[in-house]
């Protein structure tokens, strides 16, 4: 697993949670599997210099806070609908993916990002022929796990990445 790529993905995810919702995500080295039951999964596909998918899983309680913060709700009115939570997670993933691709593929490279979608559970992550998991990142978001996976549809994806030392 590429450590530099992992650092970039972790940093962009942290900046996105902070920038969108004033939430702070701290890198975690915990490699244990996330629990499907307590997580909400979302994925987004992209095409361009290389194609692939980013998957995001976040525990339910931080998603409620993420949504309330994005909507600018006060503490006493944090009852957010499942539809708004799904929208918040999709938009968060969209921003993570949109910032990740130029960081790893180069700022002069054009990528098309598809509409993010919410998945019922981890087993619904679509199959990607020839796709390889190139990195994963784990954050602690409000003391709950948050995990990202980057898949790229290339046999030798690292040859396509452009990022400085």
């Amino acid at each position: 697993m590429n450590e530099k790529l992992k650092k970039i993905l972790t940093g962009i995810a942290s900046e996105t949670f902070e920038g969108l919702a004033f939430m702070f995500g701290f890198p975690e080295d915990d490699a244990s599997a996330v629990s499907n039951e307590d997580m909400i999964f979302a994925q987004v596909d992209f095409e361009g210099a290389f194609s692939g998918r980013v998957v995001l899983a976040v525990s339910r309680s931080p998603v409620e806070e993420l949504t309330a913060n994005m909507l600018g709700l006060e503490d006493e009115e944090t009852d957010v609908s499942p539809e708004d939570q799904a929208d918040a997670l999709r938009e968060t993933l969209n921003v993570i993916c949109g910032n990740l691709l130029p960081a790893i593929g180069g700022k002069d490279t054009v990528f098309d990002i598809h509409s993010p979608e919410i998945l019922p559970d981890a087993t619904s992550i679509g199959s990607m022929p020839e796709a390889g998991l190139v990195t994963t990142a784990r954050l602690s978001l409000e003391d709950e796990p948050c995990q990202l996976w980057l898949y790229v549809n290339e046999k030798n994806p690292e040859a396509l990445f452009k990022f400085g030392d």
Partner: peptide, 9 residues
């Protein structure tokens, strides 16, 4: 207002 990061686009 977009996540677009491609300087070309």
């Amino acid at each position: 207002v977009s996540t677009e990061g491609s300087e070309t686009r």
